[in-house]
């Protein structure tokens, strides 16, 4: 259950400059790797490349190698990859299948496509809905939900596919704090079951809570990489357009004011 990118570069069709350069990244089994960075730093492109959609669906030119559980996926068609790697986009409205009249069918869409037996489709769908506490929406029309609700439905649709590898592009952008917490818990639980997960987020507090390692992108390159603790405590984070997590920011402000950070205690929760 590993996903490895070595020396990966990518350029969109018609673009003069590369969107990604020299990306080396290893996602081990059960590992959550966070991706931070300013807007336009390459986070979304990295998601498309890691999930195989760029260049397969998007076009453009790719360099370097991507190994899925040790196998080179270069020649794989998209449907073969999609059975192994799930991807969630920022805008939940575009992820609706358009052929589901109810949230239940929407969430079941992925496993149905994969040909999972009917009773398992049903149980996986219920489990995904329950994990995100949206069972009460099961009969609703997915088109008539708020942005936040659609984001939870889209996330449930990915969970129901039981992916071994999952790529998530700002999955909590439209969510309130409670929704963010539920999605964070769901990601942590999926990783605990062995999935490898790549997640981009502006909410570094969420990355601090669930990611073991974090990379920071700047101009399409990896500017920082390391354990979540080290990278998120880096004093240069703000210059890269990334807001440090609340605890790190508070500790630094305390140190700057001459107050021993230890007095703050270890209140991370």
């Amino acid at each position: 259950m590993s996903l490895q990118l070595t020396g990966v570069g990518y350029r969109y069709a018609g673009a003069t400059a590369a969107a990604l350069l020299d990306i080396d990244l290893l996602l081990g089994p059960g590992e959550v790797v966070g991706v931070a960075g300013a807007s336009e730093s390459g986070k979304t492109t990295l998601c498309l490349v890691a999930a195989g959609l760029a260049p397969r669906t998007v076009g453009g030119q790719i360099r370097g190698t991507i190994l899925l559980d040790g196998e080179d996926v270069d020649a794989w068609p998209m449907h073969r990859l999609s059975a192994r790697i799930g991807i969630g986009f920022q805008n939940p409205a575009t992820q609706l299948s358009q052929v589901a009249g109810t949230v239940f069918e929407e969430v079941a869409f992925g496993p149905m496509n994969l040909g999972v037996p009917r009773n398992e489709v049903v149980s996986h769908t219920w489990a995904a809905l329950e994990t995100l506490r949206i069972e009460n929406l099961a009969e609703r029309d997915p088109f008539r939900l708020s942005g936040g609700q659609q984001q939870l439905v889209a996330m449930a649709g990915l969970l129901a596919m039981r992916p071994e590898h999952l790529v998530l592009d700002e999955p909590t952008a439209q969510l309130d704090p409670e929704g963010t917490r539920l999605v964070g818990d769901a990601i942590a639980r999926l990783a605990a079951e062995g999935a490898s997960i790549l997640i981009t987020e502006q909410k570094t507090d969420l990355l601090a809570a669930i990611a073991a390692r974090v990379i920071v992108l700047d101009g399409g390159r990896i500017a920082r990489a390391g354990t979540a603790d080290d990278v998120l405590a880096d004093p240069g984070l703000a210059e890269l357009g990334v807001a440090p997590p609340a605890m790190h920011r508070l500790r630094r402000a305390a140190a700057d004011a001459g107050v021993a950070p230890g007095t703050l205690g270890s209140l991370d929760g």
């Binding site: 498309l48 999930a51 959609l53 397969r56 669906t57 998007v58 998209m78 449907h79 999609s82 059975a83 790697i85 799930g86 991807i87 986009f89 805008n91 409205a93 575009t94 992820q95 299948s97 358009q98 069918e105 079941a108 869409f109 992925g110 496993p111 149905m112 496509n113 994969l114 040909g115 999972v116 037996p117 009917r118 489709v121 049903v122 649709g157 596919m161």
Partner: peptide, 24 residues
């Protein structure tokens, strides 16, 4: 702008996989 993203989402959810889908 959304057409491309919709296409990608469908592909990523296995819609283009050959073979029979499960029907509920």
């Amino acid at each position: 702008a959304e057409v491309e993203e919709r296409t990608m989402a469908l592909e990523a959810r296995g819609f283009t996989r050959p073979g029979r889908r499960t029907l509920l």
